[in-house]
Amino acid sequence: MNSIERIRVLLADDHALFREGLVGIISAQPGMEVVGEASDGLEALVKARELAPDLILMDIGMPGCDGLEATRYIKRELPAVVIVILTVHDEEEKLFEAIKNGAQGYLLKNIRSHTMLELVWGAVHGEAAITPILAGHMLEEFRRLSRMAPLDSGEDVVALTSREQEVLGLVAAGASDKKIADALFISRHTVKSHMRNILAKLHVNSRREAARYIRHKGGPGLTDTAH
């Protein structure tokens, strides 16, 4: 990739005050300028088409079209744009979905600005903008995927336990980990553990795929033979 002299940045975040501060932080960098702002995913797509930025800093939780969907749409139309997710969501599934959708990085908003700036600068020059802890999650996921048989290999889906079916039912209804934990009187850690098992058993990569798979198969009706 050719070296970019001045990075043109589009900020996509629905938190106006945070976004305004981020404009100030980025504009203070000699090699960066903010060329536009968006407060939802669709606006990010429109502005990306119009402004052709080098880099988009994309929040996930935005009204209407969220940052993960927007990343997918933008990368499809403008593959050269570098997108780095900047979010409060410390969730593996969102991380994996972001990367699958084409994000060059995934950063949590609990980092310091100088770390963020170093990492996004690297992302524009081909590096992954990801902290070591999240990189560790990615490696774990790759190891898990490498142990999985491909979905079309004819290998049977291992049956879900009744608890896993309950969790999956709530996931299919759009519940967050916290809502699932509250509904089933279990910890969020336990919910995440169940989700990992569900994804492995169904040979899918995200809760969205799991929900789609189960709806396609007609509900979480797999009988309980495993535990």
Partner: peptide
């Protein structure tokens, strides 16, 4: 990062 934004 939020506090740095607010400070800005």
């Amino acid at each position: 990062l939020l506090s740095e934004s607010l400070a800005q």
